[in-house]
């Protein structure tokens, strides 16, 4: 009787595991089946490296290069801004606030603030970006470009707004994962460093952060994934015209391309949108592969 129960349980667990695998395989298959045909119909070079996006013109152009570029540049810039802030916050949480009761209180408040930041829905980030950031950006834009003959005024909905919103959105991911890996660094390492006469700052930057490197990298890569996949907030602040990703240009990302045009698109236009989805999917896939590599490295280093 006991044996039967055991084996039934085993199969239930197996089925649960299979659900996840089947989902991921089905999604991959679907994306490739739906996304690949347009690549052949339009021609991969024209589609991936074309810079003109006019899907409904009499002579349609389906170039998504600026869209890919916007996603890549936007993500990288937001990571460049977000990661230093996130990493320093993580260090502050773990190593600088545990020496006094006041510090511990500050640390607790900060931790819950970070958790709240992670829980805020992206549409709220978008809304605040739309109402606060965009008008500010428009003032800046006017300041820089008044009298410019070539600049098209965007009313503040631009690349820079998107980058700032994304940088804030990836903070919780970077902070939480970095903080837990920094906490995992053995206390004896810190003590040894301090005993050898290193200052606290030297200990942090020369000993603790290098020791937590693989965990921090994981946080960075997850942050990249989050920024790359974000759609809602970007759709609200980035303007949505297909342009070269310059700071004060209105831009469109891979995600917002899908969000804004899927509803009315038909025929080849629709198929190309699936290709856009495929490109995004491949980006995310590669990021996950990098993540797996990093984790393996981390495990080896810990052995």
């Amino acid at each position: 009787m006991k044996k039967v129960k055991e084996s039934i349980a085993k199969y239930i667990f197996l089925i649960a595991g299979i659900v996840a695998i089947i989902s991921v395989l089905a999604i991959t298959l679907y994306m490739f089946l739906k996304g690949a045909p347009a690549l052949f119909q339009v021609g991969a070079p024209q589609l991936l490296f074309g810079t003109v996006w006019k899907p409904t013109a009499a002579e349609p152009h389906y170039g998504i290069f600026y869209i890919i570029l916007s996603s890549v540049v936007g993500t990288l810039c937001s990571v460049l801004i977000g990661v230093p802030i996130g990493l320093l916050t993580a260090v502050f949480l773990t190593d600088l606030t545990n020496s006094s009761p006041l510090g511990r209180t500050v640390s607790k408040i900060l931790s819950s603030a970070v958790e709240l930041l992670a829980a805020i829905p992206s549409v709220i980030y978008g809304l605040i970006g739309l109402m606060v950031l965009n008008p500010l950006m428009y003032k800046l834009e006017k300041h820089f470009f008044t009298g410019s003959e070539t600049h098209q005024f965007t009313g503040g909905a631009n690349m820079l707004s998107a980058i700032i919103v994304l940088a804030i959105m990836i903070l919780p991911t970077v902070i939480n994962i970095s903080a837990s890996s920094i906490r995992a660094v053995s206390q004896s390492l810190r003590s040894a460093s301090l005993a050898l006469g290193a200052t606290k700052l030297q200990t942090i930057f020369r000993v603790v952060i290098p020791a937590a490197r693989s965990g921090i990298m994981t946080g960075v890569v997850l942050g990249i994934g989050r920024a790359l996949g974000e759609a809602m907030a970007i759709n609200m602040v980035a303007g949505g015209a297909v342009n070269l990703p310059l700071p004060f240009n209105s831009v469109r990302f891979l995600t917002t391309q899908l969000v804004s045009e899927m509803s009315y698109a038909s025929g080849l236009h629709r198929q190309v949108l699936f290709t856009v989805g495929l490109v995004l999917y491949i980006f995310i896939l590669s990021i996950n592969l990098i993540l797996t590599r990093l984790r393996k490295k981390g495990e080896k280093a810990n052995d």
Partner: peptide, 11 residues
Amino acid sequence: KDACAYAQELD
């Protein structure tokens, strides 16, 4: 038609 230079395209 197809000659517009939009600063913002909203959905």
